[in-house]
């Protein structure tokens, strides 16, 4: 997918820079409105991953990872399920059962409603987006031809 490390032409880079922001914003929108409209953490997470992939496609691996900080991404990816679990444990502490929805339910149709569903959607979106991106990155880095004829 990324044959030349330099990425693609200037036009594509520029278009991509404009698009990526939109794609990521859209992903975040889907995640945040998961309890109100179709989508949610899983759909929005994939949109996030697609946005990151667009960057990878346009700029090539080197430049992308320069400003994406792979270590941070990996830590975030590892930490997000932990947050899910801790939210669940908070339910045991204050809600009487594991994963009980302890926050205030709010007003129907408001963005800040439905208690824990919103934070859980955010955690899931983060997890899905980052892990899918990391998998495709690993596949892109994987070289089929090296060392195969041993």
């Amino acid at each position: 997918m990324t044959d030349k490390p330099a990425g693609m032409t200037l036009i594509i880079k520029t278009v991509c820079r404009l698009l990526v922001g939109l794609i990521l914003l859209y992903g975040i929108y889907i995640i945040l409105h998961g309890h109100l409209s179709p989508g949610g953490g899983f759909g929005g997470g994939v949109v996030l991953a697609l946005g990151l992939l667009a960057v990878l496609l346009a700029y090539g691996r080197e430049e992308t990872l320069k400003w994406l900080r792979l270590g941070l991404l990996k830590d975030l990816e590892h930490a997000s399920p932990l947050v899910f679990l801790l939210i669940g444990l908070a339910g045991t502490a204050w809600g009487g059962a594991f994963l009980a929805n302890i926050l205030s339910k709010g007003r129907l149709f408001a963005l800040l409603s439905s208690g824990l569903i919103l934070p859980l959607n955010v955690v899931i979106g983060l997890k899905v987006g980052l892990s899918l991106f990391l998998v495709v990155l690993a596949m892109a880095e994987f070289d089929l031809d090296k060392g195969a004829e041993e």
Binding site: F42, V128, V135, M139, F142, L144, G147, A148
Partner: peptide, 24 residues
């Protein structure tokens, strides 16, 4: 929704195994 996610996981894992096998 859960099942779709599981499907993608299976696909990714199988694809990774298949390209390792192809490489060899």
């Amino acid at each position: 929704l859960t099942s779709i996610v599981i499907e993608l996981g299976v696909t990714a894992l199988l694809a990774a195994l298949a390209i390792r096998l192809f490489q060899k």
